[in-house]
Structures are given as structure tokens and as C-alpha cells.
Amino acid sequence: MTFQELQTRAQHIRPARMDVVGATPFEISIIEKWEKRGWKVRYREGELEHCLQAAVDAAACGETDLLFCSGADNLKLIRFLDRAVSRDYKPLTMLQGFEVPSYPKVLWVGFTPMARYDSIPDAIKGVSVVAKSMAELGEPEARIALLSCVELISPGVHSTIWEATLAHMSQRGQFGKARVDGPLAFDLAVSPQAVSNKGFKSEIHGQADVVIPPDLNSFCTLTDEIHLTGPHTAVGIVVGGPCPIALPPHRDERHMTLSLQVASLLV
């Protein structure tokens, strides 16, 4: 999967309805281009949390198909969104996709910020939502790596326990065609050379489509690190809610448009 492929597919998506919350004048100027292409856009103005609640309620009633959020940092936004959605949709899952020169395809970093990953049901929901979203984006057999600091199951490292459980569920087909494996150290998720040097056997084989860090700190640190240490293109979306949500990691035209295009593929 590349962003170019996703953008090409997005050009053929039929215009739908979009709610926009907290947008700056610059962001509105970009969304106006979508309106010109036939999208029906509703701009919500006022107190941020209140607007998000109204937009989420509209999505739950089937009155909107896509949500664009701005007006605060992404962690704050997803906290507000998670509060706004009904229990059926909790916890929401954040997906950030990166194209970096050293990796041959889009590397998605997935996380469910409001989940407690020591709660197996939350972890299962998060991974299921990621697997489903990958299938909708055209990768039904996505390789999903559950990250930890080791590849061995160790009672001293709690994340390895629930990750092993999920990997076992995957072997039994409980995540559809997605191939979920863990615990895996980051190098075994993204480097075939590291896998071969270690003689490690895994369905991921150093070619993960998605990596899922074990906790919020790891997710924030990993995504910030990719953003700030070298060239990249990035996309941010929130899945698992009443409609796909575009949450661009950068507020420039290129990244906003790309995030909206990818989110529109999930409508």
C-alpha cells in the first residue's frame, strides 16, 4: 500500500457529507475545495467539546459520513471524541500512517488511546478495528505487529502476555484474514534483515503494515519521533467510531488533503 495508490482510489469516491469542527480559516479554505467537488460540508462553530459532541451525534444518526477535527492537539481531540461517542464505539482507535524513505510501504501506527491494554477486551476491540480498517483500505491480509521490548513472552513485561493472547487468536482466524503477531520488538516488525539475523519465525517477517505499541506513551513517542527525525509523509485518522474521522498530524494542505482522502475511503 502506498499513499499514491490510496489517493488514486480516493479520486473515485462519490462526494458525501462532512462535518467540520474547530477548523482555522486556512483549513476552511482547503475544505472549500472539497465542497466544490460536491461534498456537503457543515461547519460547526463554538465551544470545541460541544461541537464535537454535536458532530458525533450527527454521525451516529447517519446525518454525516465523515468528520474533520481541529482546534486542539490530537491527543486532546481524541479524548474529547472518546467522551462524546456512545459506549458501543468505545474505545476509539487512532491510526497514523507514514511513508518514510527507508520503508517500502506505508507503515501504520495504531493505538487506542483511551483503552486499557491490560484489559483484553479493549485490546481485542482495538486490533479488530485496525484489521477491519486495513481491509477497507485494500489490505485484507494486513500484517499487524504488536510491539513490545522483546519477542519472548515474559511475565515481567505485562504487554507480552496480552499480545501473545491476541497473536493466538489471530492464528485461529479471529481477526479475519489479518495476520497479527506479537510480542515483537520493533526491529522484528520492520526489518527482514533483523528477522533473518535472529533466525526468528513470524508471519510479519519484518514487513509489518501496522505496528501497535503497547501503551500511550510508546505510541506518542514513536509517532513524534517519526515526525521529527526525518523526511516523511503522514496521515492521521480515527476509526471505530460512528464515522471515519480525519485528524491530520500536520496542518498543511498536503497532509490535510491526504488525511481527508484516506478517511473518505472508509466512508
Binding site: 510491539l147 521490548c149 522483546v150 520493533f186 505499541p213 501503551d215 510508546s218 513517542t221 514513536l222 519521533e225
Partner: peptide, 8 residues
């Protein structure tokens, strides 16, 4: 955590 440092 050990995971955060290792992944970073």
C-alpha cells in the same frame, strides 16, 4: 517504560 525506550 521499557517498551517505550526499546521502541524509540
Amino acid at each position: 517504560s521499557i517498551e517505550e525506550a526499546n521502541i524509540a
